[in-house]
Each structure stands twice: as C-alpha cells, then as structure tokens.
C-alpha cells in the first residue's frame, strides 16, 4: 500500500530525483509517503467552533499549502492532523482524519503512534536546548522508543536531507541552541525526518526567519518533495506559489468558524480561482 503511494508520488513528480535509501529503523513508522485526508473535520475550543466541515485530501508525496488570513483555523487544522489539537485543554473535534486510509482518531489508536508517523515543524524553531546537535537529531528515536543500529548514518542522512549537514558536520556535539535561527529550524526539520515520518506538517516554518534562511528552507522542502507528504501553513503567497503543488484557502467570516473556501492545484489557485474571495486574497487585496 505505502509502496504504491511512493510510486504514485514518483510518477507524479516533476523532479526525477530518486528517494534515497533511508537508514533502517526498528520500530519506526512504515516506509514511504502517505496521503492524509480530512473528512468533515471540525474543531472546538471550549464552546467555540473554530473550524467547520473541512474536507481536504493532501496527496502522498506532494506539498500542500494552507493559506488564509490569521485566525481562520489553518494551524488548528494542522494540529488536528497529528492529534496535537487534543492536547489543548477544552479542545474538541469531529470528523475523521485518514492517514493511508485509516482514521487516526479511530477508537483504540494511540496518539503517540500517529504523531510518530506525522512529524511536525513549529513556527518558532525549538531545538532541545539541553541536547547537542547530534542528540537533537536522534531525540525522536529516544522519545518514541525507536531503535537504530546506524545512528551516525542516520544523523548524517537526516541532516543531509534537511540541508544542514555541510554546515554542522564538524560541530555535531555543540548545543543546538548555538545555531542561527534558520539553522535551528532546519535542525528541527532533521529531527522530524530522523524518525522517517510519512507526513511532515509545517506550521509557518519561516515566519520567524530572515529571507536567506527562508530560501534555504524552501529549497529543503523542494528536495523533500516525493520523499514525504508535506503540509505547510504559510502567510506568504509567494512562498505558497513557490513550494506547493496544491493549495487550500481557509477563511473565517466574522463570528463564524473557519472553512475551506477553495482547494485546487497551486497553478489554478493563483491564476483562475473559482471563488472571488480566493482571488482577492491571493492578489493581496485583504488578509
């Protein structure tokens, strides 16, 4: 099943770059990128409905960008996908999130297992300050109890995939906090990649970074395409246009929960969207 998705991703891809052979993990997630799909997803904070009936397919091995003005539920939706939403006190949800066709909220399924398969990169780079660069990369193994015989290989490969290896290869034992903001963010990407997730969620990963670091991260996303399904929340229209294959436009009208107004391929969304509001937004007339 997962092999098929990887193949589909490859056949879809514009880049012929092959998926590298990943260092073997014992007890990690199944290999390959996986499609993730939300069906009728709703989210509440307390009594307040913040997200209503989102149906969205994020195809395997492709980059889906979630765009929309602040407070329209993009980040909430993202956190719904890997079951981080339920950690917020008073949060509730409805609908289904299918990872590889299986509901992540199915009764008896463990959130920990879901989160291992769906990695997440946060808005602020947050490497673990008490760990070295190397330990940061390997932290996922330790935290999710995954074993690996070739840790050095895994560190190198993960940092390589995140585009950071050349910069830090000589100082793997320095604390992760000593890196620059952009490097820290790529370290966080490497940390997420080390457990070989099927999906990688990115919550405005560049909003705290300068333009150069932003470009490096975008390059990294480009290189990761096809290896892992990427869902990225961004406020930056150009960024969405540059990195994504698909786009979904979220909007919350006044006093109403957020909804998906439109979703389509990025090309269509930025040239001939069906909805006027989408056009207004992508052309920068509001938001």
């Amino acid at each position: 099943m997962t092999t098929i998705t990887v193949d589909r991703a490859r056949s879809n891809g514009t880049h012929p770059s092959p998926t590298p052979r990943l260092v073997e993990l014992i007890g990690g997630p199944p290999p390959g990128a996986a499609a993730i799909e939300a069906r009728g997803a709703c989210a509440w904070f307390g009594d307040r409905l913040v997200l209503e009936s989102v149906d969205l397919l994020m195809p395997a091995g492709q980059v889906t960008a979630l765009i929309g003005p602040s407070g329209c539920g993009k980040s909430t939706f993202l956190r719904l996908l890997n079951r981080m939403h339920e950690l917020v006190p008073g949060a509730a949800l409805d609908g289904e999130v299918l990872l590889d066709g299986e509901d992540v909220y199915r009764h008896g399924r463990r959130a920990q297992e879901v989160r291992t398969r769906i990695g997440m990169v946060f808005q602020k780079p947050n490497p673990f300050p008490a760990m070295s660069i190397r330990d940061n990369v390997l932290s996922g193994l330790k935290l999710a109890q995954i074993k690996c015989h070739d840790k050095d290989g895994l560190v190198e490969q993960s940092l390589e995939r995140a585009g950071l290896w050349k910069e830090v290869r000589d100082r793997l034992h320095q604390p992760g906090g000593a890196l620059s903001g952009g490097q820290q963010q790529r370290l966080c990407i490497a940390r997420s990649l080390a457990v070989h997730p099927n999906v990688l969620l990115m919550d405005e990963p560049c909003s705290a970074l300068d333009p150069t670091s932003t470009r490096r991260i975008e390059e990294t996303i480009g290189e990761l395409r096809h290896q892992v399904t990427i869902v990225i929340v961004t406020h930056n229209m150009q960024q969405a246009q540059r990195v994504s294959d698909h786009c979904a436009f979220f909007l919350a009208e006044e006093n109403e929960p957020g909804r998906v107004i439109e979703h389509a391929t990025t090309t269509k969304m930025f040239s001939t969207p069906d909805d006027r509001r989408t056009l207004n937004y992508v052309e920068g007339r509001f938001g």
Binding site: L49, D94, G95, R110, Q112, N255
Partner: peptide, 23 residues
C-alpha cells in the same frame, strides 16, 4: 453560543476522542 450559530448549520456535537495513555 448556540444563538450565534447560523440556522443553516445546526450545532454539532464533538466526537468523543480517547487516547489510551501508555503504560
């Protein structure tokens, strides 16, 4: 809160989600 919800979409009940804690 319910008063503010538009008539078109009746108030929905959240789904009960349980995460069995690990040992």
């Amino acid at each position: 809160m319910d008063a503010e919800t538009p008539v078109a979409s009746p108030p929905r009940r959240p789904r009960v989600v349980v995460d069995e804690p690990a040992r």
